[in-house]
Nucleic acid binder design. Structure first.
Lengths: 215, 215
DNA sequence: GAGTAAGCGGAGCGAGCGCTCCGTTTATCT
DNA sequence: AGATAAACGGAGCGCTCGCTCCGCTTACTC
């Protein structure tokens, strides 16, 4: 928030207006078609030139980061809400539901949630905020006997990777099909459903290496 | 098999040799790096020019189709084996295990298994062979009370889409992590684990539309 | 062994991408 | 109103693809 105000200070009036136009049209296009839309389409919808875009954002990634700022805030909010929920399993499922709904509504989130997107400072900050909340939530759900005990925080990306694929694939044809997938997976995560798994979760170091490799 | 012999008939000896070299090097590269390797790398490894490649295959997709012929055959074999297994659940899980292991070992399968790849005649033939076998297998596993009854054959692509993502993402860092994912999902597919799902499966028509959209 | 159709090689085309460069326009301040 | 620094626009660069074109080479036939 403070950073946000700082970002907006010393700009000439037209520059600030155009920056906002760019973010707005990028948001629309990302939501419609994902982050892979060409930058030229973004500038065209904004009625501006590409020079203008690159005056404001050093790289397309930075634009993505700026556009997703609100979505990140919502995600953090969902995690905080889940963290204080008495019934940890309910909190866990509600968080997943909310996160994936955001994901589905804003296809731009896709690459970023999925551990990818490295240089994105806002994305990194969001993950840093969310991670401990979810880790604690998982522990509590396990203590309460709802979540299978061999599930770890390092298995969480699995849910985002796979749900992301379902959302991408079926968005155009059955935009809420991901809920069915989530239902199936959650049934496998309940403590009662657990049977021994063939191999351990990834280590934190392995996950970090994956993130570093990026897109 | 008969078709295979037919393919190889009226070629000059050097042409046949070069065709095989191309398929061989494509197979290696697809397995190593997925189907997205540039065609030029394929021809280089084969020690041939690109003109040669496009004399034999009208399009890169056709080459993919030819390369994956053996993998398709193995898949069909796995499905046939599963179909005659007395314990339908065991057959079901063994098929998934085998299919995903093929998938992991041969990254080229990735785009094809996932309903994509349309013009690929061999791929289409394989799907046509496998589909009824799996449909029957699912029915039997449900009759035997092992597989949840709200799972349908149209939910099957879900497993390939999502497992494919896991395999792609973790292949370089933990090449058998997909087994853990499969374990989790299978626990959600058992009849005992089932809780009501929020929405129905895709219809056959919807799946067909997805396939038609392709990559 | 000569003639010929079949096969070959690889420069290069066209399309799409992110991004740069710099001549032109414009907001702002006196 | 004039001066000036800030902001703008968009042609074009550099890169990567899949794929084509056509002059050259080679295997097969008689």
């Amino acid at each position: 928030m403070t950073a946000r105000v700082a970002d907006e200070k010393k700009l000439r009036s037209d520059a600030r207006r155009n920056r906002e136009r760019l973010v707005a049209s990028a948001r629309e296009l990302f939501a419609e078609a994902g982050v892979d839309v060409p930058v030229e389409e973004i500038t065209q919808r904004a009625g501006l030139g590409m020079g203008t875009l690159y005056r404001h954002f050093a790289t397309k990634e930075e634009l993505v980061d700026a556009v997703l700022e609100d979505a990140f805030a919502e995600l953090v909010g969902a995690a905080e809400l889940a963290a204080v929920e008495e019934d940890a399993w309910a909190g866990f499922t509600a968080f997943l539901e909310r996160a994936l709904a955001l994901h589905a509504a804003n296809r731009g989130l896709k690459d970023v949630l999925a551990t990818r997107g490295q240089g994105l400072t806002r994305a990194e900050a969001m993950r840093a905020r969310i991670r401990p909340l979810l880790r604690r939530l998982i522990e509590r759900a396990q203590e309460q006997g709802a979540l299978r005990s061999d599930f770890t925080a390092e298995d969480l990306p699995l849910l985002f990777w796979t749900s992301g694929r379902v959302i991408e694939t079926t968005a155009a044809i059955a935009p809420d099909y991901w809920r069915r997938y989530l239902g199936l997976v959650l049934d496998g995560l309940r403590a009662e459903a657990a049977t021994p798994l063939p191999r351990p979760a990834l280590t934190e170091a392995q996950l970090a290496r994956l993130a570093r490799r990026g897109a």
